[in-house]
Amino acid sequence: MGKTKAAEKEPDNGVRSKKKSPVGRLLRAFLMIVVAVLVLTVVVNIVINRDFTVTFYQIDTIKVTDSVRIIELADLHNKEYGNKNEDLIRKIKALQPDLIFYAGDMMNYHDYNYSVLFDLSDKLSEIAPIYACYGNNELDHSLFEDKTFAEKFQSHNVRLLSNEAEEIEVGNTLIQLIAISDDLKQFDIETNNAKKFLESLEPTNACRICLTHYPELFHEKLLDRGIDVAFTGHAHGGLIRLPKIGGLYSTGEGFFPDFTAGVIQVKDGAQVVVSRGLGDSHWIPRINNQPELVVVDLNWY
């Protein structure tokens, strides 16, 4: 006859039964499944993130006469898509932009290999005019490593703007492009140019577009400046994107940041485009956050 359940649980001659409890087995199985799912997720995302996706946004503003197409590249961090970024260049050429914006961090601090960025700029300048602002990497690099970086960069047909404005005419549409170089910490420094520059800006009938690396400036600093549309990056999409929640972490805003991806309409009505970026600058893998090339069509209707 078989033993009863109670008898089975009792230790035999003081020796613990080798059979684990069902709860323990379940827990172990659950943990194994979780680990397997995590590993699989990371591997799948690493594979997916080797390519970029194209995200299209339609923005309405009555300040434009005809449709204006702007392509935004941000946070490339010297990454290459194909040999000398040929995949990226081919895609941008096919999309026929009117303007190309670099929203900062196109290269890496301490990295003297400029060939990726310069080769890309040479090719893209044949497609449309390129305008760029400083990201934290470019700014630090040009301040502390290579003071001639800006000059070299501009010699590759890139108009690098730093706390300054420029008027651009696209068809019958007049655009006033303003570029801000300072982040949240540098913004309030008395000697800094960004604050003074913004205060010196006069109202305009032109469509005012702001190019800055730091989307968090739109929490307060860049509000009520008459900006119609802004192009930003920096947040890398919040690294890990959770469904229905959004990005998990960004260096500018910490955990659960507000500005990680998409078009966000801020309090004063400005529409802030936040790119998830094209490259990486650290070891944390992007999860559910494929690198993206942002295409924005400005339409009046």
């Binding site: 390519d51 996706t53 194209v54 995200t55 299209f56 339609q58 449709s67 069509d297 339409n299 209707y301």
Partner: peptide
């Protein structure tokens, strides 16, 4: 390839608006 159906739809809407206008 390389784009969402939602984006394709938004471009279809834009194309129709361009056509209508």
């Amino acid at each position: 390839k390389g784009m969402r159906a939602q984006d394709l739809l938004s471009l279809l809407c834009k194309s129709y608006k361009d056509y209508l206008f």
